[in-house]
């Protein structure tokens, strides 16, 4: 195994985070803080509890998940798209690194960045809202699993995209609506029955539900189903990535 190769890619990507700390860390933290201020403190104080949890505290897992998904996708997509765009991908393709090592380097760095960001947002949330974490290990596991899964998804987008516009399309046009409709700001029990059924087709529902369970022990769907659905999505992403490397799709002609 080319451990030096993995390390090189990983550190190179992490260095990008350091260089762009405003964009990579501060910007999403500030955005999420605004959600806490508006929905948690201002509007939340006028809303009733959900499952005996204050509204401000209830939305924390969903807001962390929103940032986590967007940043995982964005970090990994840019990580692999930029060398393709600048042409420096030739170096990765001509190096003695396996497909797995390339993915571990890029996706590992993207997942690390978003996990760190998720934790920063959790700490920041404490300044606005009181909350407890009932199952901290599960919370951390969900955080890492989701980061890895969606970083893989971002990696796929970064390979598929042939322009900067496409890099933005999936996160903005698909992921954001799915997160907003996936129970970030409400419990899906609050929806009419037909919309509850439709919501179950939204994979983000399972992520937010499982993550919220780790905080408060309450969930829209059973935590086992949440874990299973996340693993299924992870398996699909792994399958697509291995197909990409096997065929050289958009990488090798």
């Amino acid at each position: 195994m080319n451990l030096h190769g993995i390390r090189a890619i990983y550190l190179f990507e992490m260095a990008r985070m350091k260089r762009t700390v405003m964009q990579s860390v501060l910007s999403p933290v500030i955005s999420t803080c605004l959600y806490f201020v508006v929905f948690g403190s201002a509007i939340g104080s006028r809303m009733g509890d959900i499952n005996s949890i204050s509204y401000g505290a209830y939305i924390i897992p969903g807001l962390v998940m929103l940032t986590l998904l967007m940043q995982s996708i964005s970090n990994a997509a840019f990580g692999i798209y930029m060398p393709r765009f600048s042409g420096t991908i030739y170096e990765v393709l001509s190096a003695p690194v396996s497909y797995l090592e390339v993915v571990v380097g890029y996706v590992g760095a993207a997942a690390t960045k978003s996990t760190i960001l998720g934790l920063i947002i959790l700490i920041t949330a404490r300044f606005f809202v009181d909350y407890a974490i009932l199952h901290p290990l599960w919370m951390l596991s969900f955080l890492v699993l989701t980061s890895v899964t969606f970083s893989l998804f971002g990696f796929i987008i970064g390979i598929w995209a042939d322009g900067f516009e496409k890099l933005q399309i999936v996160p903005m046009m698909i992921v954001t609506p799915l997160v907003f409709l996936g129970g970030t700001f409400y419990s899906i029990d609050m929806l009419p029955e037909v919309w509850q059924t439709i919501s179950l087709f939204n994979p983000v529902v399972y992520l937010i539900s499982g993550f919220r369970w780790a905080f408060y022990g309450v969930s829209d769907v059973h935590v086992g189903i949440s874990v299973a659905m996340t693993l299924v999505f992870l398996a699909i992403c792994v399958g697509i990535v291995s197909w990409i490397f096997r065929t050289g799709y958009r990488l090798r002609t």
Binding site: H4, A8, G87, P96
Partner: peptide, 30 residues
């Protein structure tokens, strides 16, 4: 094998030292 491609495909924001060190690591060298 070492390759110097025809196109001037270089990183933009990295320093010379970091970019060259990255290449060494990528090729499996300590």
């Amino acid at each position: 094998i070492g390759l110097v491609p025809q196109e001037l495909s270089t990183d933009a924001f990295e320093t010379v030292w970091d970019a060259v060190s990255f290449s060494r690591g990528l090729f499996g060298k300590a």
